[in-house]
Amino acid sequence: MIKASLSKSKKITNSVLFILFTLFAVIQLNDPDPMHWFLIYMGVAVISLGSNFITIPKAIIVLIILGLLVYAAMHFMFLIDWLQTENKSEILGEMVYEKPYLEGSREFLGLLIAVGALLYQLKR
């Protein structure tokens, strides 16, 4: 369905979200498990850009949000483990296989960012 005219600020916001999530997706290509993260972030990017041109059914966005929240819930304990550590800054460092909570926390936070972008699309 063709979308009615959006305000210029909403089109700009959608374009910025598209660029950001495309960058997030490309960065994932060096991850040990790149494809599903690439697809998650590119999916959000495509929805963001596509929203400038077509009306994306709210039901589809809600289903994707629910799926991402379920996936985020699987990483929630990693976030709790990280929050209980003394050195919070190590989340910004390299992945350490002896500390799986670092990668799990990053993944949890990334999923929440993706959900936030989709909630923006849902509210419009």
Rank of each mutant, 00 (worst) to 15 (best):
G116V: 00
V16Y: 05
K123I: 15
M35V: 12
L17V: 06
K123L: 13
Y101I: 00
M95T: 13
N14R: 15
F24R: 14
F24Q: 10
Y71K: 11
F78C: 04
S15G: 15
V62T: 08
M95G: 08
S9R: 11
M77P: 02
L122P: 03
M74A: 13
I47A: 14
L6G: 05
V26N: 09
E86Y: 02
V96I: 15
G104A: 00
S51W: 10
L23V: 13
I27E: 12
I113V: 15
I40P: 04
L49C: 07
T22A: 14
I40L: 14
D81T: 06
I54T: 04
I61H: 02
F21D: 09
A117T: 02
S9C: 09
Y97M: 12
Q28W: 05
V46E: 03
M74K: 12
S48L: 03
L63E: 06
D33N: 14
E107P: 00
K99T: 07
W82T: 00
A25W: 04
M35Q: 12
I12H: 04
L23W: 11
L23Y: 15
L66F: 12
G110S: 01
A73G: 11
S5N: 13
L109H: 05
M42C: 08
T22M: 13
I65F: 01
M77Y: 13
L68C: 07
L83S: 06
E103Q: 04
A59G: 10
L69M: 13
I60T: 03
K58Q: 06
M77L: 11
A117Q: 06
R106F: 01
K99G: 06
N14L: 03
W37V: 02
G50K: 02
